[in-house]
Write a protein that binds this DNA or RNA. Structure first.
Length: 479
DNA sequence: CTGGGGAAGGGGCCC
DNA sequence: CGGGCCCCTTCCCCA
């Protein structure tokens, strides 16, 4: 006989013990903040902790301390809450960082949920855009508000660093409501009782993407959003049809987008730009189911199609707004490309060194620069070299050119090796795009390892034909 | 500690 | 719409 409530009860008890610091035998230091936890729980939840605690298992009687600097304390709090409750408080704002941290901690379930969260948000936007296009201007004016509010429910809190000031109900940034059903790790009955972790706008750890994660926003914008949230509980945010005024999220902080409007009629002017920031796209409650796509971008957005009037002419133009930041691009393809800086997807691996790139042209550039020694310039003296005056030196998988003088000075011409006998570097297998996104700095280690080839210094004659021949063996993953 | 250079990465835009 | 080029900024390494 099985008592179904036992597991949840047990987890609840463990969580209570954690909060009361009972039997906690593990301390995790994140950004100066100490989190107490039970090593057995961490062990069971995280591959990282499993490895860490396994290594220290001999001193099991001693308290364990772990320190992280790769992510914020707020992010770790979200993850720790998930570990102890099974509830993952994802928001549009923290999803990237949570996913990064989960990757670091090797918590595949959390990663999957984050990816689904992102994917679904894009799907939602796609559907909203489709509906938007099907509507006349009048319809947009009369119906757009509802849709906008739905969307704001999904994204509002993500951009608000003041989420910590919100009431638990307002924390539906935890993906509540029909819109986010796919991600709702909260039993509906528990949503309101779940305290939210703070979600300060913290640029790290995804430093490269941090610039796009709401940093453009001014305090005015944030304050406004916060106050709006206080006015309206979460449930109504997603399901009800609030007054039109609610749509007017002030976005003056981003002056670059001033002038965005819905529709072209004069009656839309009052709403101008309100929508452009966080809720550019009209949204529909009824159409906000997330669809499944194997590839995150196959059904991509168009995350938000925005009709805008521009100063130079009055022709409406399509703009696509990133759901994660305030960036707006003219083409859907550009948005698709831009989104990779948020998702961390790097679908283009260099077959020579394994380093992965988010863009094909970056991969090509990398390959030409690093592995093909295309620059006819001596790396040491910077002089122009020709086939007669210089040679290509191979250092691991890295190639560069040296003039004959610098070569003799370096005294490395004794290691010249015939390329025909020198096999190309072992290429890493290309992994599945969806399942092998690299997050954070994981790539660096690959590069460092592979390119640490000082002992493999090889010199080859500068010969374009050789390069071309080599290119057949070592080539970027251009498809 | 600082400045220079290389590499990476992001955006605009043409083809 | 993808590929690719150009330009720019940022980061990192090294002298």
């Amino acid at each position: 006989m099985e008592i179904s409530s036992h597991q949840s009860h047990l987890l609840q008890q463990l969580n209570e013990q954690r909060k009361q610091d009972l039997f906690c035998d593990c301390s995790i230091l994140v950004e100066g903040k100490v989190f107490k936890a039970h090593r057995n729980v961490l062990f069971a939840s995280s591959g990282y902790f499993k490895m860490l605690l396994s290594q220290g298992s001999k001193e099991a009687s001693q308290p364990t301390t772990a320190t992280f600097q790769a992510f914020s304390s707020e992010t770790f709090s979200v993850i720790l809450d998930f570990v102890y409750s099974g509830k993952l408080s994802l928001t549009g704002q923290n999803v990237i960082e949570v996913m990064s941290a989960a990757s670091y901690l090797q918590m595949t379930d959390v990663i999957s949920v984050c990816k689904t969260f992102i994917k679904s948000s894009l799907d939602i936007s796609e559907k909203e855009k489709d509906r938007y296009f099907s509507l006349s201007d009048k319809e947009v004016n009369s119906n757009g508000v509802d849709r906008l509010c739905l969307y704001s429910a999904g994204w509002r809190t993500e951009n608000s660093p003041q989420a910590s000031h919100l009431s638990p109900e307002q924390g539906t940034c935890i993906v509540s409501g029909n819109t986010w059903t796919n991600f709702n790790y909260y039993p509906a009955a528990q949503r309101n009782a779940q305290p939210l972790p703070k979600h300060d706008q913290r640029p790290e750890p995804l430093k490269k993407t941090s610039r796009h994660l709401g940093l453009h926003q001014t305090s005015d914008v944030l304050h406004y959003k916060s106050s709006k949230l206080e006015e309206r509980p979460s449930e109504s945010m997603s399901l009800a049809s609030p007054p039109e005024d609610d749509v007017q999220i002030d976005s003056e902080g981003d002056s670059g987008h001033a002038g965005y409007q819905y529709g072209q009629g004069s009656d839309t002017v009052s709403r101008s730009l309100a929508v452009s920031q966080e809720q550019d796209s009209p949204h529909s409650v009824g159409k906000s189911k997330s669809s499944k796509g194997d590839e995150p971008y196959t059904s991509m957005p168009s995350v938000l199609g925005v009709m805008g009037n521009w100063a130079d002419d009055d022709l409406p133009r399509m703009r696509f707004k990133c759901p994660f930041c305030t960036h707006v691009v003219k083409r859907k393809a550009d948005l698709k490309r831009h989104l990779r800086c948020h998702t961390g997807e790097r679908p283009y691996p260099c077959e020579a060194c394994g380093k992965r790139f988010s863009r094909l042209d970056h991969l090509s550039s990398h390959f030409r620069t690093i592995h093909q020694a295309c620059k006819p310039i001596c790396r040491k003296c910077k002089r122009h070299v020709t086939e007669m005056t210089g040679q290509v030196v191979q250092e691991g998988t890295r190639r560069y050119r040296l003039c004959n003088e610098c070569l003799s000075e370096a005294g490395i011409d004794s290691i010249r090796i015939d390329l025909d006998t020198e096999p190309p570097p072992e290429f890493p297998l290309e992994e599945d795009k969806d399942s092998s996104w690299n997050y954070g700095d994981d790539n660096k280690s690959d590069v460092e390892i592979v390119e640490d080839g000082s002992s493999d210094l090889v010199i080859q004659q500068v010969d374009d034909s050789d390069d071309e021949a080599e290119e057949k063996d070592i080539k970027p993953n251009i498809r």
